[in-house]
Write a protein that binds this DNA or RNA. Structure first.
Lengths: 114, 114
DNA sequence: TACTTATATAATTATATGATTATATAATGG
DNA sequence: CCATTATATAATCATATAATTATATAAGTA
């Protein structure tokens, strides 16, 4: 794991955002690559506006970046984020979320976004 | 760095507590060994009750443990905490707080606790 | 153009959080 | 026992946060 040292003031906003079930799950999903918004709403079983607002916070903080492709918006981890190493480190400590995405795949719910 | 995988539900409460300037500083200070409450209040420049309440949260969550010695209470990281590896990992990403303790030492403000 | 799907935003409201002030407890020294 | 020092707790209040509902935007399609 990398050793980029952050000032407390830089780390706190990132950690504040990580300390939420929805957002930590989102980031866990993104560890395996980009996801589209509809996948988050499926996995999180939350309303679309709620997911959208969590994404906005992560986006405003530069933790994730978005990429609109037609109707869909895909999110991914922003490797240029100052606390990227910290975020990755934390994600590495939580259980893999890829199973949840695989589950979507099985249910054919991932196709819709592609 | 260790690889204890936590469920999202276990990691979130820890991260919530880490996402605060006072508490993250406290944990950064504890990385170098135990500290007594008066040291936290000095370094953080916060009121004693405020510090005490942050310590309570960390204690309730089992992130730190306390050890009363006479008039003073010393805190240290709880190595048995389920998310200890996560906490250590995060602390390793923030700048060293030992300088602040050294500064106390220079000002003779650390002696009072010993 | 109208309709649909995907996503974002805004307003509202309920709950959580943190700081302050006052007070309580616990240990120590006269 | 009383006073002092260190720490904890409780009550209050202001602010932050998250979910919901309604609405807006943006892209695709008939």
């Amino acid at each position: 794991m990398k050793k980029t040292r952050l000032e407390i003031e830089e780390a706190v906003p990132a950690l504040k955002l990580l300390g939420d079930k929805a957002r930590l799950t989102i980031l866990g999903m993104l560890k395996n690559g980009e996801c589209c918004v509809c996948e988050f709403t499926e996995v999180l079983e939350m309303s679309q506006p709620s997911v959208s607002q969590h994404l906005r916070k992560l986006r405003d903080a530069k933790i994730v970046k978005e990429d609109r492709r037609g109707q869909w918006v895909f999110y991914s981890l922003n490797e240029s984020y100052e606390a990227y190493d910290l975020v990755l480190g934390v994600i590495d400590h939580v259980s893999d979320q890829s199973e949840k995405i695989a589950e979507l795949e099985r249910q054919g719910k991932r196709i819709e976004c592609k």
